[in-house]
Computed example of a mutant assay.
Amino acid sequence: MNIHSITIEVADNEDVAATEHFYQDAFGLDDRIRVGVSSTSTSGFRGFAPSLIFTQPADVDVLFHKAISGGAEVLKPVAKSLWGYGGSLRAADGTVWQIASASKTGDGRPTGTIEKLVLLLGVEDVKASKRFYEEQGVKVSKSYGSKYVEFDSGRIALALYKSANLAKQVGVPPEGRGHTVSP
């Protein structure tokens, strides 16, 4: 399975152009993010969080600034942590994003290069979900037992994370309904 783009759904046709414009201007994700109109309403945590990974912490700062200037809401401010440097935000369309660098320190110069785009899916049972994808022929590239699994899915990495843990990681309550993303 190769994921070439992610489709994010919005409430109506009027939101499509604005959302496409935001993702192009703030994130530079023109061909990796597509926008469509949802047939169902959503609320709260939607059960997924795209994650942009950069090599330089300075890129995280630049992207956060662009996203906030474009109307995004900070959920978790950018900060150093055990795993690196990053934070999370909610785009105007409601999608919760994680922006990070595995490096806590860099050379200070932003490169603008996205190292990886990961589609984090919140699931109730990571092991069972992993088995499902393996049965579909998707190869595992990283696995940390029942905590986190990442698949070799091409241009966009697909990863599984326990739903409640993903919500906590990005700074939102775990309650919500609706499906607004598709690989």
Rank of each mutant, 00 (worst) to 15 (best):
A102P: 10
F48S: 07
H21K: 14
E73S: 09
E115R: 15
W83M: 13
L29N: 13
G145C: 06
M1Y: 06
P183W: 08
P183F: 08
A67D: 02
K162R: 14
T180P: 00
E14Y: 13
R177C: 04
S51W: 12
R131D: 14
H65G: 12
V172G: 04
S88F: 10
G178E: 10
G87E: 05
K116F: 02
V96E: 09
L121I: 13
A17K: 08
G108N: 13
F22E: 14
G71K: 05
Y133H: 04
A26I: 08
D93C: 11
P57A: 01
R46H: 10
L63T: 15
I114V: 15
I53F: 14
G71Q: 03
R90C: 03
S103Y: 09
S81K: 05
L166D: 00
D12Y: 11
V118M: 12
V118L: 10
V172F: 00
T95H: 07
A91P: 02
L158P: 05
T19V: 07
H4P: 06
N13H: 13
P57G: 09
K142W: 08
D25A: 14
E20R: 15
V138E: 07
T40H: 11
L82W: 07
D61M: 06
E115G: 15
L75G: 03
V149W: 11
T42R: 11
S163D: 09
I6N: 00
P50G: 13
S5Q: 00
R46N: 07
I3C: 01
G106A: 09
A49Y: 10
E124F: 01
Q136W: 10
D107N: 15
V35W: 03
S5K: 02
V126E: 00
A159I: 02
A18Y: 05
T105W: 11
I3G: 05
A164Y: 03
N2A: 06
A17Y: 00
G122M: 02
G154Y: 06
L158W: 02
H179L: 09
G178H: 09
A26Q: 12
M1D: 00
R131A: 15
D31N: 03
G122H: 01
G106F: 08
E9W: 07
S143Q: 15
L117K: 08
T180W: 13
L119R: 03
K80C: 04
L121V: 14
L121Y: 01
V138A: 12
T95D: 07
S101L: 12
I6G: 00
Y144P: 03
L52T: 15
I33M: 11
R34A: 06
S43Y: 14
D93L: 06
T105N: 15
R34C: 04
K142V: 12
I8K: 02
K127C: 07
S103A: 15
A167C: 00
A67W: 01
F22R: 13
V96F: 11
G154W: 01
P173G: 07
E20H: 09
D61K: 14
G171T: 08
G70C: 09
K116P: 04
A26E: 05
K147I: 07
V140R: 09
G47Y: 10
A79Q: 13
V140P: 05
Y148D: 01
P57E: 01
G154S: 05
V74E: 10
P57R: 11
V96Q: 04
A164Q: 08
E134L: 04
V138N: 01
V37F: 02
V37C: 03
